[in-house]
Every structure is written in C-alpha cells, then in structure tokens.
Design a protein around this nucleic acid. Sequence first.
DNA 1: GCAAAAGTGTTTCGTTTACACCCATGC
DNA 2: GCATGGGTGTAAACGAAACACTTTTGC
Lengths: 278, 278
Amino acid sequence: MEENNTTFTYKYPRPAVTTDCVIFGFDGHDLMVLLIERGADPYKGMWAFPGGFLRMDETLEECALRELKEETSLQPGMVEQFHAFSSVHRDPRERVITVAFYALVKMAEVRGGDDANDARWFKVADVPPLAFDHDYILRVAMKQLRESIFFKPIGFELLGDVFSVPQLQRLYEAILGVQFDRRNFYRKIMQLGILDPVEEPVEEKSPRFFGKKKEMKEQDIDTLFLEPMTHRYSSINLEADFLQSPVHKEAGRKPQLFRFNRKKYELLKERGDFRLEW
Amino acid sequence: MEENNTTFTYKYPRPAVTTDCVIFGFDGHDLMVLLIERGADPYKGMWAFPGGFLRMDETLEECALRELKEETSLQPGMVEQFHAFSSVHRDPRERVITVAFYALVKMAEVRGGDDANDARWFKVADVPPLAFDHDYILRVAMKQLRESIFFKPIGFELLGDVFSVPQLQRLYEAILGVQFDRRNFYRKIMQLGILDPVEEPVEEKSPRFFGKKKEMKEQDIDTLFLEPMTHRYSSINLEADFLQSPVHKEAGRKPQLFRFNRKKYELLKERGDFRLEW
DNA sequence: GCAAAAGTGTTTCGTTTACACCCATGC
DNA sequence: GCATGGGTGTAAACGAAACACTTTTGC
C-alpha cells in the first residue's frame, strides 16, 4: 500500500471489511483450492485465501475480483458470494468482518509467475491448517459448492473447454464425495443436451497443447511428468494442459470429447429444467 | 442512541456495517413480510426492513437479532444470513454495506404493542416501494426462501404448533407460487413421517385461543373479523390465533390437525433423506 | 490376446402424476 | 339435500438404479 498520512474519523466505531476468495480447481482427479502464503503477521508463513480490504468506491464483488487479480493474477468471469464471517476475534489485530466468495476456474487457464510466487494449489482433502478462521470458511464454501452443483453447471466452469464425460463424472464424484454408475451418469448428462461433441483435432493443430506452448515437443511431456508433482504453478500448468489435451494416455477406449454448450444450458435454466441430481 | 462525544479514527476509510432482517410470516393464505415505517430521514415515512448498525462486541447474527427485538419485539429462534449488499450508493448518506438475514416466524406468536407501533405485516405480493435497496433485498430473500424450502422444514416455522395438511399446502403454494394436487401433497407429506396427529382439543382447554387471551368470548371473534383487515398488530394477532385455533369455519370436512415432530425431522436430515420436492 | 476403460441397450423398481371415490361439515 | 372441502386408493407414466453387452485402446 502507498503512503497515507490522512486519517478517517467516525462517530461510532466501525469494523474493517475484507473479502476472501475460495478458488476451486480440478486437476482431473481431485478438487483443488488455491491458497497464498502469508508474507506478514499475523499468521506469517501460514496459508490463507487471497483477499483484502474493501475500498470505498467498489462493491464487495469488485473488491474480491481486484484482490484476486492482485494476488494471483486470476480473473475469473464471476465470483459467487456465499457468507459473511463476523466472529468478534477472528482477526487478532482488530475487528474485521469478511465477506467470502468462491469461484471456479479452469486450472488450464491459470498462468502463474507474475507476483504470485507464493500462491499454490492444494487438494481440498489435503489443505494445511489455515490462517484466521479460513479453515471454517473452507468448510462452509465446500458445503455451498455441493449445494450449488445441483442448480448450476458448476462442473463446466472447472474443466477445460474440451473434456470427456468420464472427466466430468470424476469431478462430480470429487465434489460430492460419492460414486456414480458410469453408464447412468453418461446417459443422464447426455440427455440434458448441453454437450456438443468435438471431432478429433486436426493434426496440423498442435495436438497436445493449447495456447502458447507450441514450442514444446512430445517427449518433453514425459520428462516433465517424471518430476515430483509439487503443484507449484510451473508444474500445475503442465498438468492442466494435460487435462485439456486430447491426448489419451490411459488404457481403454479413447473417450469422446465434448464442449459445453452454454446457450442450450441457458435455455434449460430459463425453463427451470436444469437439475443435475443423483 | 445515547450521547457520544468520543470519536474513532482509522488510517483507511471504512464503510458502516448494518444488518437487515426480512421476516416472513403466513396468515393462512398469503406469505407475509414484516416492515417498519422509517421515522427519520433518509426515506422518512417509507417502509423498510428492521435493522441497524453492527456493534463491536457482537456478531452479525447477534446484531440482527438485537435490532429485530428492539424494533419489533420479535425474538425468533434463529435468523439465516443470506447475502451482503454493497452497492456504493445504496445509502445516500455515506457508504454502508448491509448483511441481510431472513427469519420465519409464527404470526400467532407475534405480540405487538411495545415500541413497535410502526411495524406492520404486508402481503409479499403487495409490498409498497421500500427504502434504500430493500426492494432488491426482498427479491433476493424470496429467491433464497424458495430454494431453502426443499432442504429445510421451513413451512413448519411459519405455521402454528398445530396445523392441518391443507394449511401446509397453502403455505407451500404461496411460497413457490404453484399449485399442487391435494391428494398427492397429502400422501407425500405424510409418508415423511414427521407429522404427529393431534386429537381433538379437550373442551376444558380454551378451545379457540392459545396463550393469554382466555378472557375473550366466541362472539368477539366474529365482531373483530368484521373490521377491515388493516394487518396492524392488533388484528394480526387475532388472525394468527384463528390460524392456530382448531375452530373450523369453512364448509367441508374438518381437517385433521398435526404437530411437527422435530425429532423425526432431525433423524431424516442426518440421513440426508429430507427432500420436499415438487 | 488380454485388461481396462468407454459407449449402448435393457430390465426392474420406485416415485410421481392423474384422477375416481368416499367422508364430514355448514347451510 | 347439496355444495364444499378433506382423506383414501389405484392405475398409468416416468425416471432412477442395476446390470449385460459391445467397442476401442495400450501393452
């Protein structure tokens, strides 16, 4: 923050107001959450959600998006407010209430580096103890996520543009913590009619990477994947690319790839017919 | 507020933080909402939700309950936080963000008078233009209410201790704005097993009124009901008593009365089996 | 060929929907 | 009696759950 010699005086005491963002991602197998390492006290060195103080000329949503961009370079299309936390001593310094948001991002689109060297993805099942009341905030966010998944096409925000039905199923299973019958899942998702099949990629288009990494060669992938997965941005991006890629590494039949058809989804939602339940 | 000569100074500007409560009730036919008439500018004379400023030693929930009690004498068991509103100019005086709650109360238990002479129930379909952004807050609250009704036994909080299945159906229809088949509703609600039948009231127990109004006689009811329903507390209470009462005024078969069995409901909820869908 | 994973079809079962019928009450 | 509203039963339609079978791919 810049130098500031002015002060602000009020007749009654006021709490400080912050926003925090719980950013969810999906690496193809586990639900992930983005944390940043605190560089200053309190809780210096601990992990926490990106967030910061509300400015007078912005809404809470704008604040959440701004702080998120500043701290992680991420710019999701929207963040969803889910709860305000207001325990009197949740911040040891002074009275702070925070309004928490969650957002779903395609990990493939996360471009790290920048000033976000202290940001890292963690498996949700595997997060370390967090600063402030952020452990609690995460639990509430998970609860919200599970409830929202029935009414919103949440899954699609977390996957790449192109994905397979089995990938989508793994995502739903990771979020809800249950197992579905492969065949029933397939039929149910297909009969919603919101997935458009994608033909096999033409060979001249870089078949293994989207975006800027065309200089990489096929064998680089294997080399890089031999590294232990630290889940730092550098390796995360590769994993995300792999997720997006039509490359099929596993045994078994190669899955059909699909694209999410947002228009058809909007139509369904208008009619109140969008319900993904199991 | 009491005299206050002290001031509070901060390095950065801070918004004022308030809470607002959307209180829902049900009069047997329509979903109602409790509003108070503003006695001071801004928006003097307009209707608004009860609410007020957060104190430093209370959580948002505590603030909501305190303000509600101060302004309407109401003390619901719980209030449910649903959204924080933060448009920059939502309060013309200064920057104020508000955290909104909703609560469901049995109108029968509303005991007015006190310092709440400017409080009044309105049909939700029929509210006047409200102060600040409270029209918008109401719309969001209604949306939340409709979504929550599937997972929580919301209906039961709004009805008296003793109610009939048709009454419950009217409530669901009022909230969701749809019509259900009488017979299917009956079966579905009964097979949840959370309603205990109530035998006909013994004659010696005041058969027409619960609570403190035993001095009233039967014909008083008719007299009072001839008054135009202003929906001020004085008449509201009577209407609510009528709702609770086992008296049957309409044509047709007298409905069986039930009591909500909270224990059985808790059991269902534990197992995730509580779903009231139509 | 074999194992593993993906896509398709079918059968069963339970729930929802629609509606017919009878019961109780007030006028 | 008759109109009105409340409680019970039943059959058809629909969707969910379970599972057998075929196809495709990597080794």
